[in-house]
Amino acid sequence: MDREGFDALVAKAFSQPADLGETHAFLAVQGGKLVFEKYAEGFGPHDTYKSWSMAKSITQALIGILVREGKIDIHAPVKAPEWPAGDPRAAITLDQLLRMSSGLAFREDYEPDNPSDVIDMLWGSGKDDVAHFAASFPAAHAPDHFWSYSSGTSNIVARCAAEAAGKKGAEFETFMREELFGVIGMKNVLPKFDKAGTFIGSSFCYAEARDFAKFGLLYLRGGVWDGRQVLPEGWVDYARTPTAQTPKAFEEEGPYGAHWWLGMGGPGSFSANGFEGQFTLIVPDLDMVFVRHGRSPGEQSKNVKKWLGAVTETFRK
């Protein structure tokens, strides 16, 4: 590797430059081993860090477990009480929700001064029942005809997972711990639930940086952990299969799979991305996982993506 280049990039990130914002934690795993770990002053390996939208990828894993157990069919129409028979939304499948192609209207805007459905869902009128709030939106497009990133759809997916498991609230949290977190050794994880008992799978699953690295390693290993097929065969390939997007969406947002983003660390890489620069990046050709936590609003978060891409390249020298 280019160690000099790597060290320079890490030093820059932890100096809190104006273009990258604050970096609180950075980890690199290669060959299943932790090969680099650094924390900012005031942060450490046993602190929990915000997931923000990295929780979406955890939600995708939960659906995978239910697929493995034969409890859910991602290609069947979702039976949402908000979508009665004859409603065009009643044709929406879980697959379309996972690929952000349901066609449901939803404004994904995190600026408090702008009308924002996601802020209203998480902290306003929708906070007590996030899935119902999201599922109540009208169809803006026919299913599978338009890609639009939406935290609302992830909470509908989380409700589907609870219904398939036959559990909600504390019982569903136990399911998460027994079937996912406990299996792969995620020791300090705190998922959040709304008053309706739905995991807020769009945004809220706090964990240690090392825990997010373990989650990334599960996907790097094709859903297998210590010889156990945690995710069904082919589920990771499904996660990283590109979803059709308009040229504008592809240019502005980047390529997308099924609740995972694509390409940040070069061809074949995929990542769980969260608000303000939370990233778990998986790079199969290098057998690596990178985890970065911090606070990088707006354009700074986009710059962190470029920084992670540059860090990845130092291992290809």
Rank of each mutant, 00 (worst) to 15 (best):
H46W: 13
R3F: 12
V130G: 00
A55H: 01
L20Q: 06
A244I: 13
L286V: 03
H24N: 05
R240D: 08
M54W: 02
A161Y: 02
F43D: 06
K168T: 14
D285A: 02
F106T: 01
E82P: 02
S57R: 01
D95W: 03
P138W: 09
F133M: 05
E69H: 03
A61D: 11
G223W: 15
M176F: 09
L180V: 03
L220A: 10
V78S: 07
W307Y: 10
H46L: 15
A85L: 04
E299F: 07
D87Q: 02
P84F: 10
V230K: 05
V311I: 13
E111C: 10
I72N: 15
Y238I: 01
L34R: 15
A80V: 01
S125W: 05
R210T: 10
G263T: 15
P255L: 14
L308K: 10
D120S: 06
D120E: 14
G86L: 15
G42I: 13
F14D: 01
V289T: 13
A142T: 14
A91D: 04
E4S: 01
Q30Y: 08
I74W: 02
L217M: 14
I72D: 10
T280S: 03
D287S: 09
P284V: 11
S296P: 02
E171M: 13
A213P: 12
I65W: 00
G201Y: 05
G257R: 09
G86W: 11
D194N: 07
S148C: 14
V289Q: 11
G21E: 12
R210V: 14
A158G: 00
H259N: 10
E163K: 08
F175D: 04
A207Y: 02
G263N: 07
E208Q: 13
V35R: 12
K305S: 14
P247R: 08
R228Y: 00
R292N: 01
D117N: 07
T93D: 01
E37K: 12
G103T: 02
Y110F: 08
D287F: 01
L286Y: 09
G274F: 00
V118Y: 00
G197W: 12
G257E: 04
K167L: 04
D109G: 08
D129W: 07
C160H: 05
F26N: 04
G222T: 04
A90D: 05
G86I: 12
L180D: 10
A140H: 12
H132Q: 15
K317E: 15
A40K: 10
L190C: 09
K187A: 10
V78W: 06
D73G: 10
P84D: 07
F146H: 15
T48P: 00
G294F: 06
P242Q: 00
Q229H: 15
L20I: 03
F181Y: 13
V78P: 05
D144V: 02
G86H: 08
P267H: 07
K305M: 09
R295I: 06
V10H: 15
L286W: 11
V67M: 15
G124T: 09
D226W: 10
N303G: 07
G265E: 06
D109V: 07
G182L: 04
D211K: 00
G268S: 12
T241I: 06
D87E: 02
T243C: 14
M121A: 05
R292T: 04
V35K: 11
K38G: 04
F43G: 04
P255S: 06
P84H: 07
F172Q: 02
K167Y: 00
I200R: 00
V289A: 10
V189P: 01
R228N: 13
F275D: 09
M100A: 02
